[in-house]
Amino acid sequence: MAQHIARRLSIRRRPRDPRAQRGAGTLASVPYRYRSDDIDLDKTIDVLTERPVPEDTDIIVRERMRSRRAAVLIVDVSGSMRGEKVRITAATVAALAAELADDQLALVAFWSDAALLKRLEAAVAPAKLLDQLLRIPARGLTNVHFGLAVAHAELAGSAARQRTAILLTDAVHNAGPDPRTLARRFPELHVLLQTDGEHDVPLATDLARLGHGRLAPVRTHRDAAPALNRLLAG
C-alpha cells in the first residue's frame, strides 16, 4: 500500500536547469521549460535564425532563478509504524522526492536513536528510499533532538544557498535533551505534525517557530502533499 501511494505521487516535473530553480532571484534568459511566458525576443530571434523549424525549447524566456536547494526529511519511526502512519510517511517521501527531483534531498530516520539513510549528494530512487525507511524496526521512544542533530550536521556540510529541513513527527518527545535548543540552529525547519493519534501541538509549534519555519498538520496520507506545498511555497 505504501509503495502504491508513493507511485501515485512520484510524478516527475518537466525538466529544468539542474544548477538553479525558479524563484525570487536573479532574472535570467533561459530556454523555455513550460513555465514562464515572458519571452526574450532578442535572444529568441537569434536562435530562430539558425533553426527555421524550431522546437518549444528553442524559445528563450526570462525567469527569476535561484541557486539549487538542499533539504533533509527527518522521519519519526518510533512507536508503531503501521496503518495511517506508514501511509503518511510514504506520501511524504514520494511528494518531497518529486518536488526536489532536481535538487538535493537527504533522509534521516529517528526513534531513541537516529540514522542517516541518504546523504544529500547520493542518488537513490524514491521507491528504494521508502523501502529502506519502512524496513527499520519501529522503536518505542522518541528522541526528536537526536533526529535534528543528525539532520543539522548533514545540512551544515551543504553549500546550497537554500537549506531546509522538514520534520515529520507526532512530536511526542520522551527521550533525550529538549529539541528546542537545536531547532534554533536551523536556517529553516518546517514541521509536518501527524495528528492521527497522540501528538504534541505546543512542542511542534515551538520547533517550527524557533526553526524559522512553519507548522502543517497531517491527519491522513492525502494531507501530506498539500501540506508540503504550503510549507515549501515560501
Rank of each mutant, 00 (worst) to 15 (best):
I11C: 15
R12S: 13
R13N: 14
R13Y: 13
R16Q: 08
D17Y: 07
P18V: 04
G23D: 07
A24Q: 13
A28V: 15
S29N: 13
S29P: 09
V30Q: 07
Y34K: 04
Y34F: 12
R35A: 12
S36I: 07
D38V: 14
I39F: 01
D42W: 02
T44G: 03
I45K: 03
I45G: 00
D46K: 09
D46C: 00
E50N: 02
V53R: 13
V53P: 00
D58G: 01
E63R: 09
E63F: 01
E63N: 06
R64L: 01
M65I: 09
R69V: 05
A70I: 02
A70R: 00
L73F: 06
V75L: 14
D76M: 12
G79Y: 13
G79T: 12
S80A: 05
R82V: 02
E84M: 08
K85M: 05
I88L: 13
V93Y: 06
V93I: 15
L96R: 09
A98V: 10
E99H: 15
E99D: 14
L107W: 02
V108S: 06
W111E: 14
A114D: 08
A114Q: 06
A115F: 14
L116K: 03
L116V: 01
L117S: 09
K118S: 11
E121N: 07
A122L: 00
A122T: 04
A123K: 11
P126S: 07
A127N: 04
A127W: 01
L133F: 14
R135Q: 15
R135S: 14
I136D: 05
R139Y: 09
G140T: 12
L141C: 10
V144G: 08
H145N: 15
A149T: 11
A151F: 03
A151Y: 02
A153D: 08
L155I: 00
A160H: 04
Q162E: 12
R163L: 04
R163H: 04
D170P: 03
H173F: 08
H173K: 08
A175G: 10
G176L: 13
R180F: 03
L182Q: 06
R185T: 11
P187R: 09
E188F: 01
H190T: 03
H190V: 04
V191I: 06
L192G: 12
L193H: 09
L207I: 01
L207A: 04
R209E: 07
R209W: 03
L210T: 01
G213C: 03
R214K: 14
L215S: 10
V218M: 10
H221F: 07
R222F: 05
A224P: 10
R230G: 13
L232S: 10
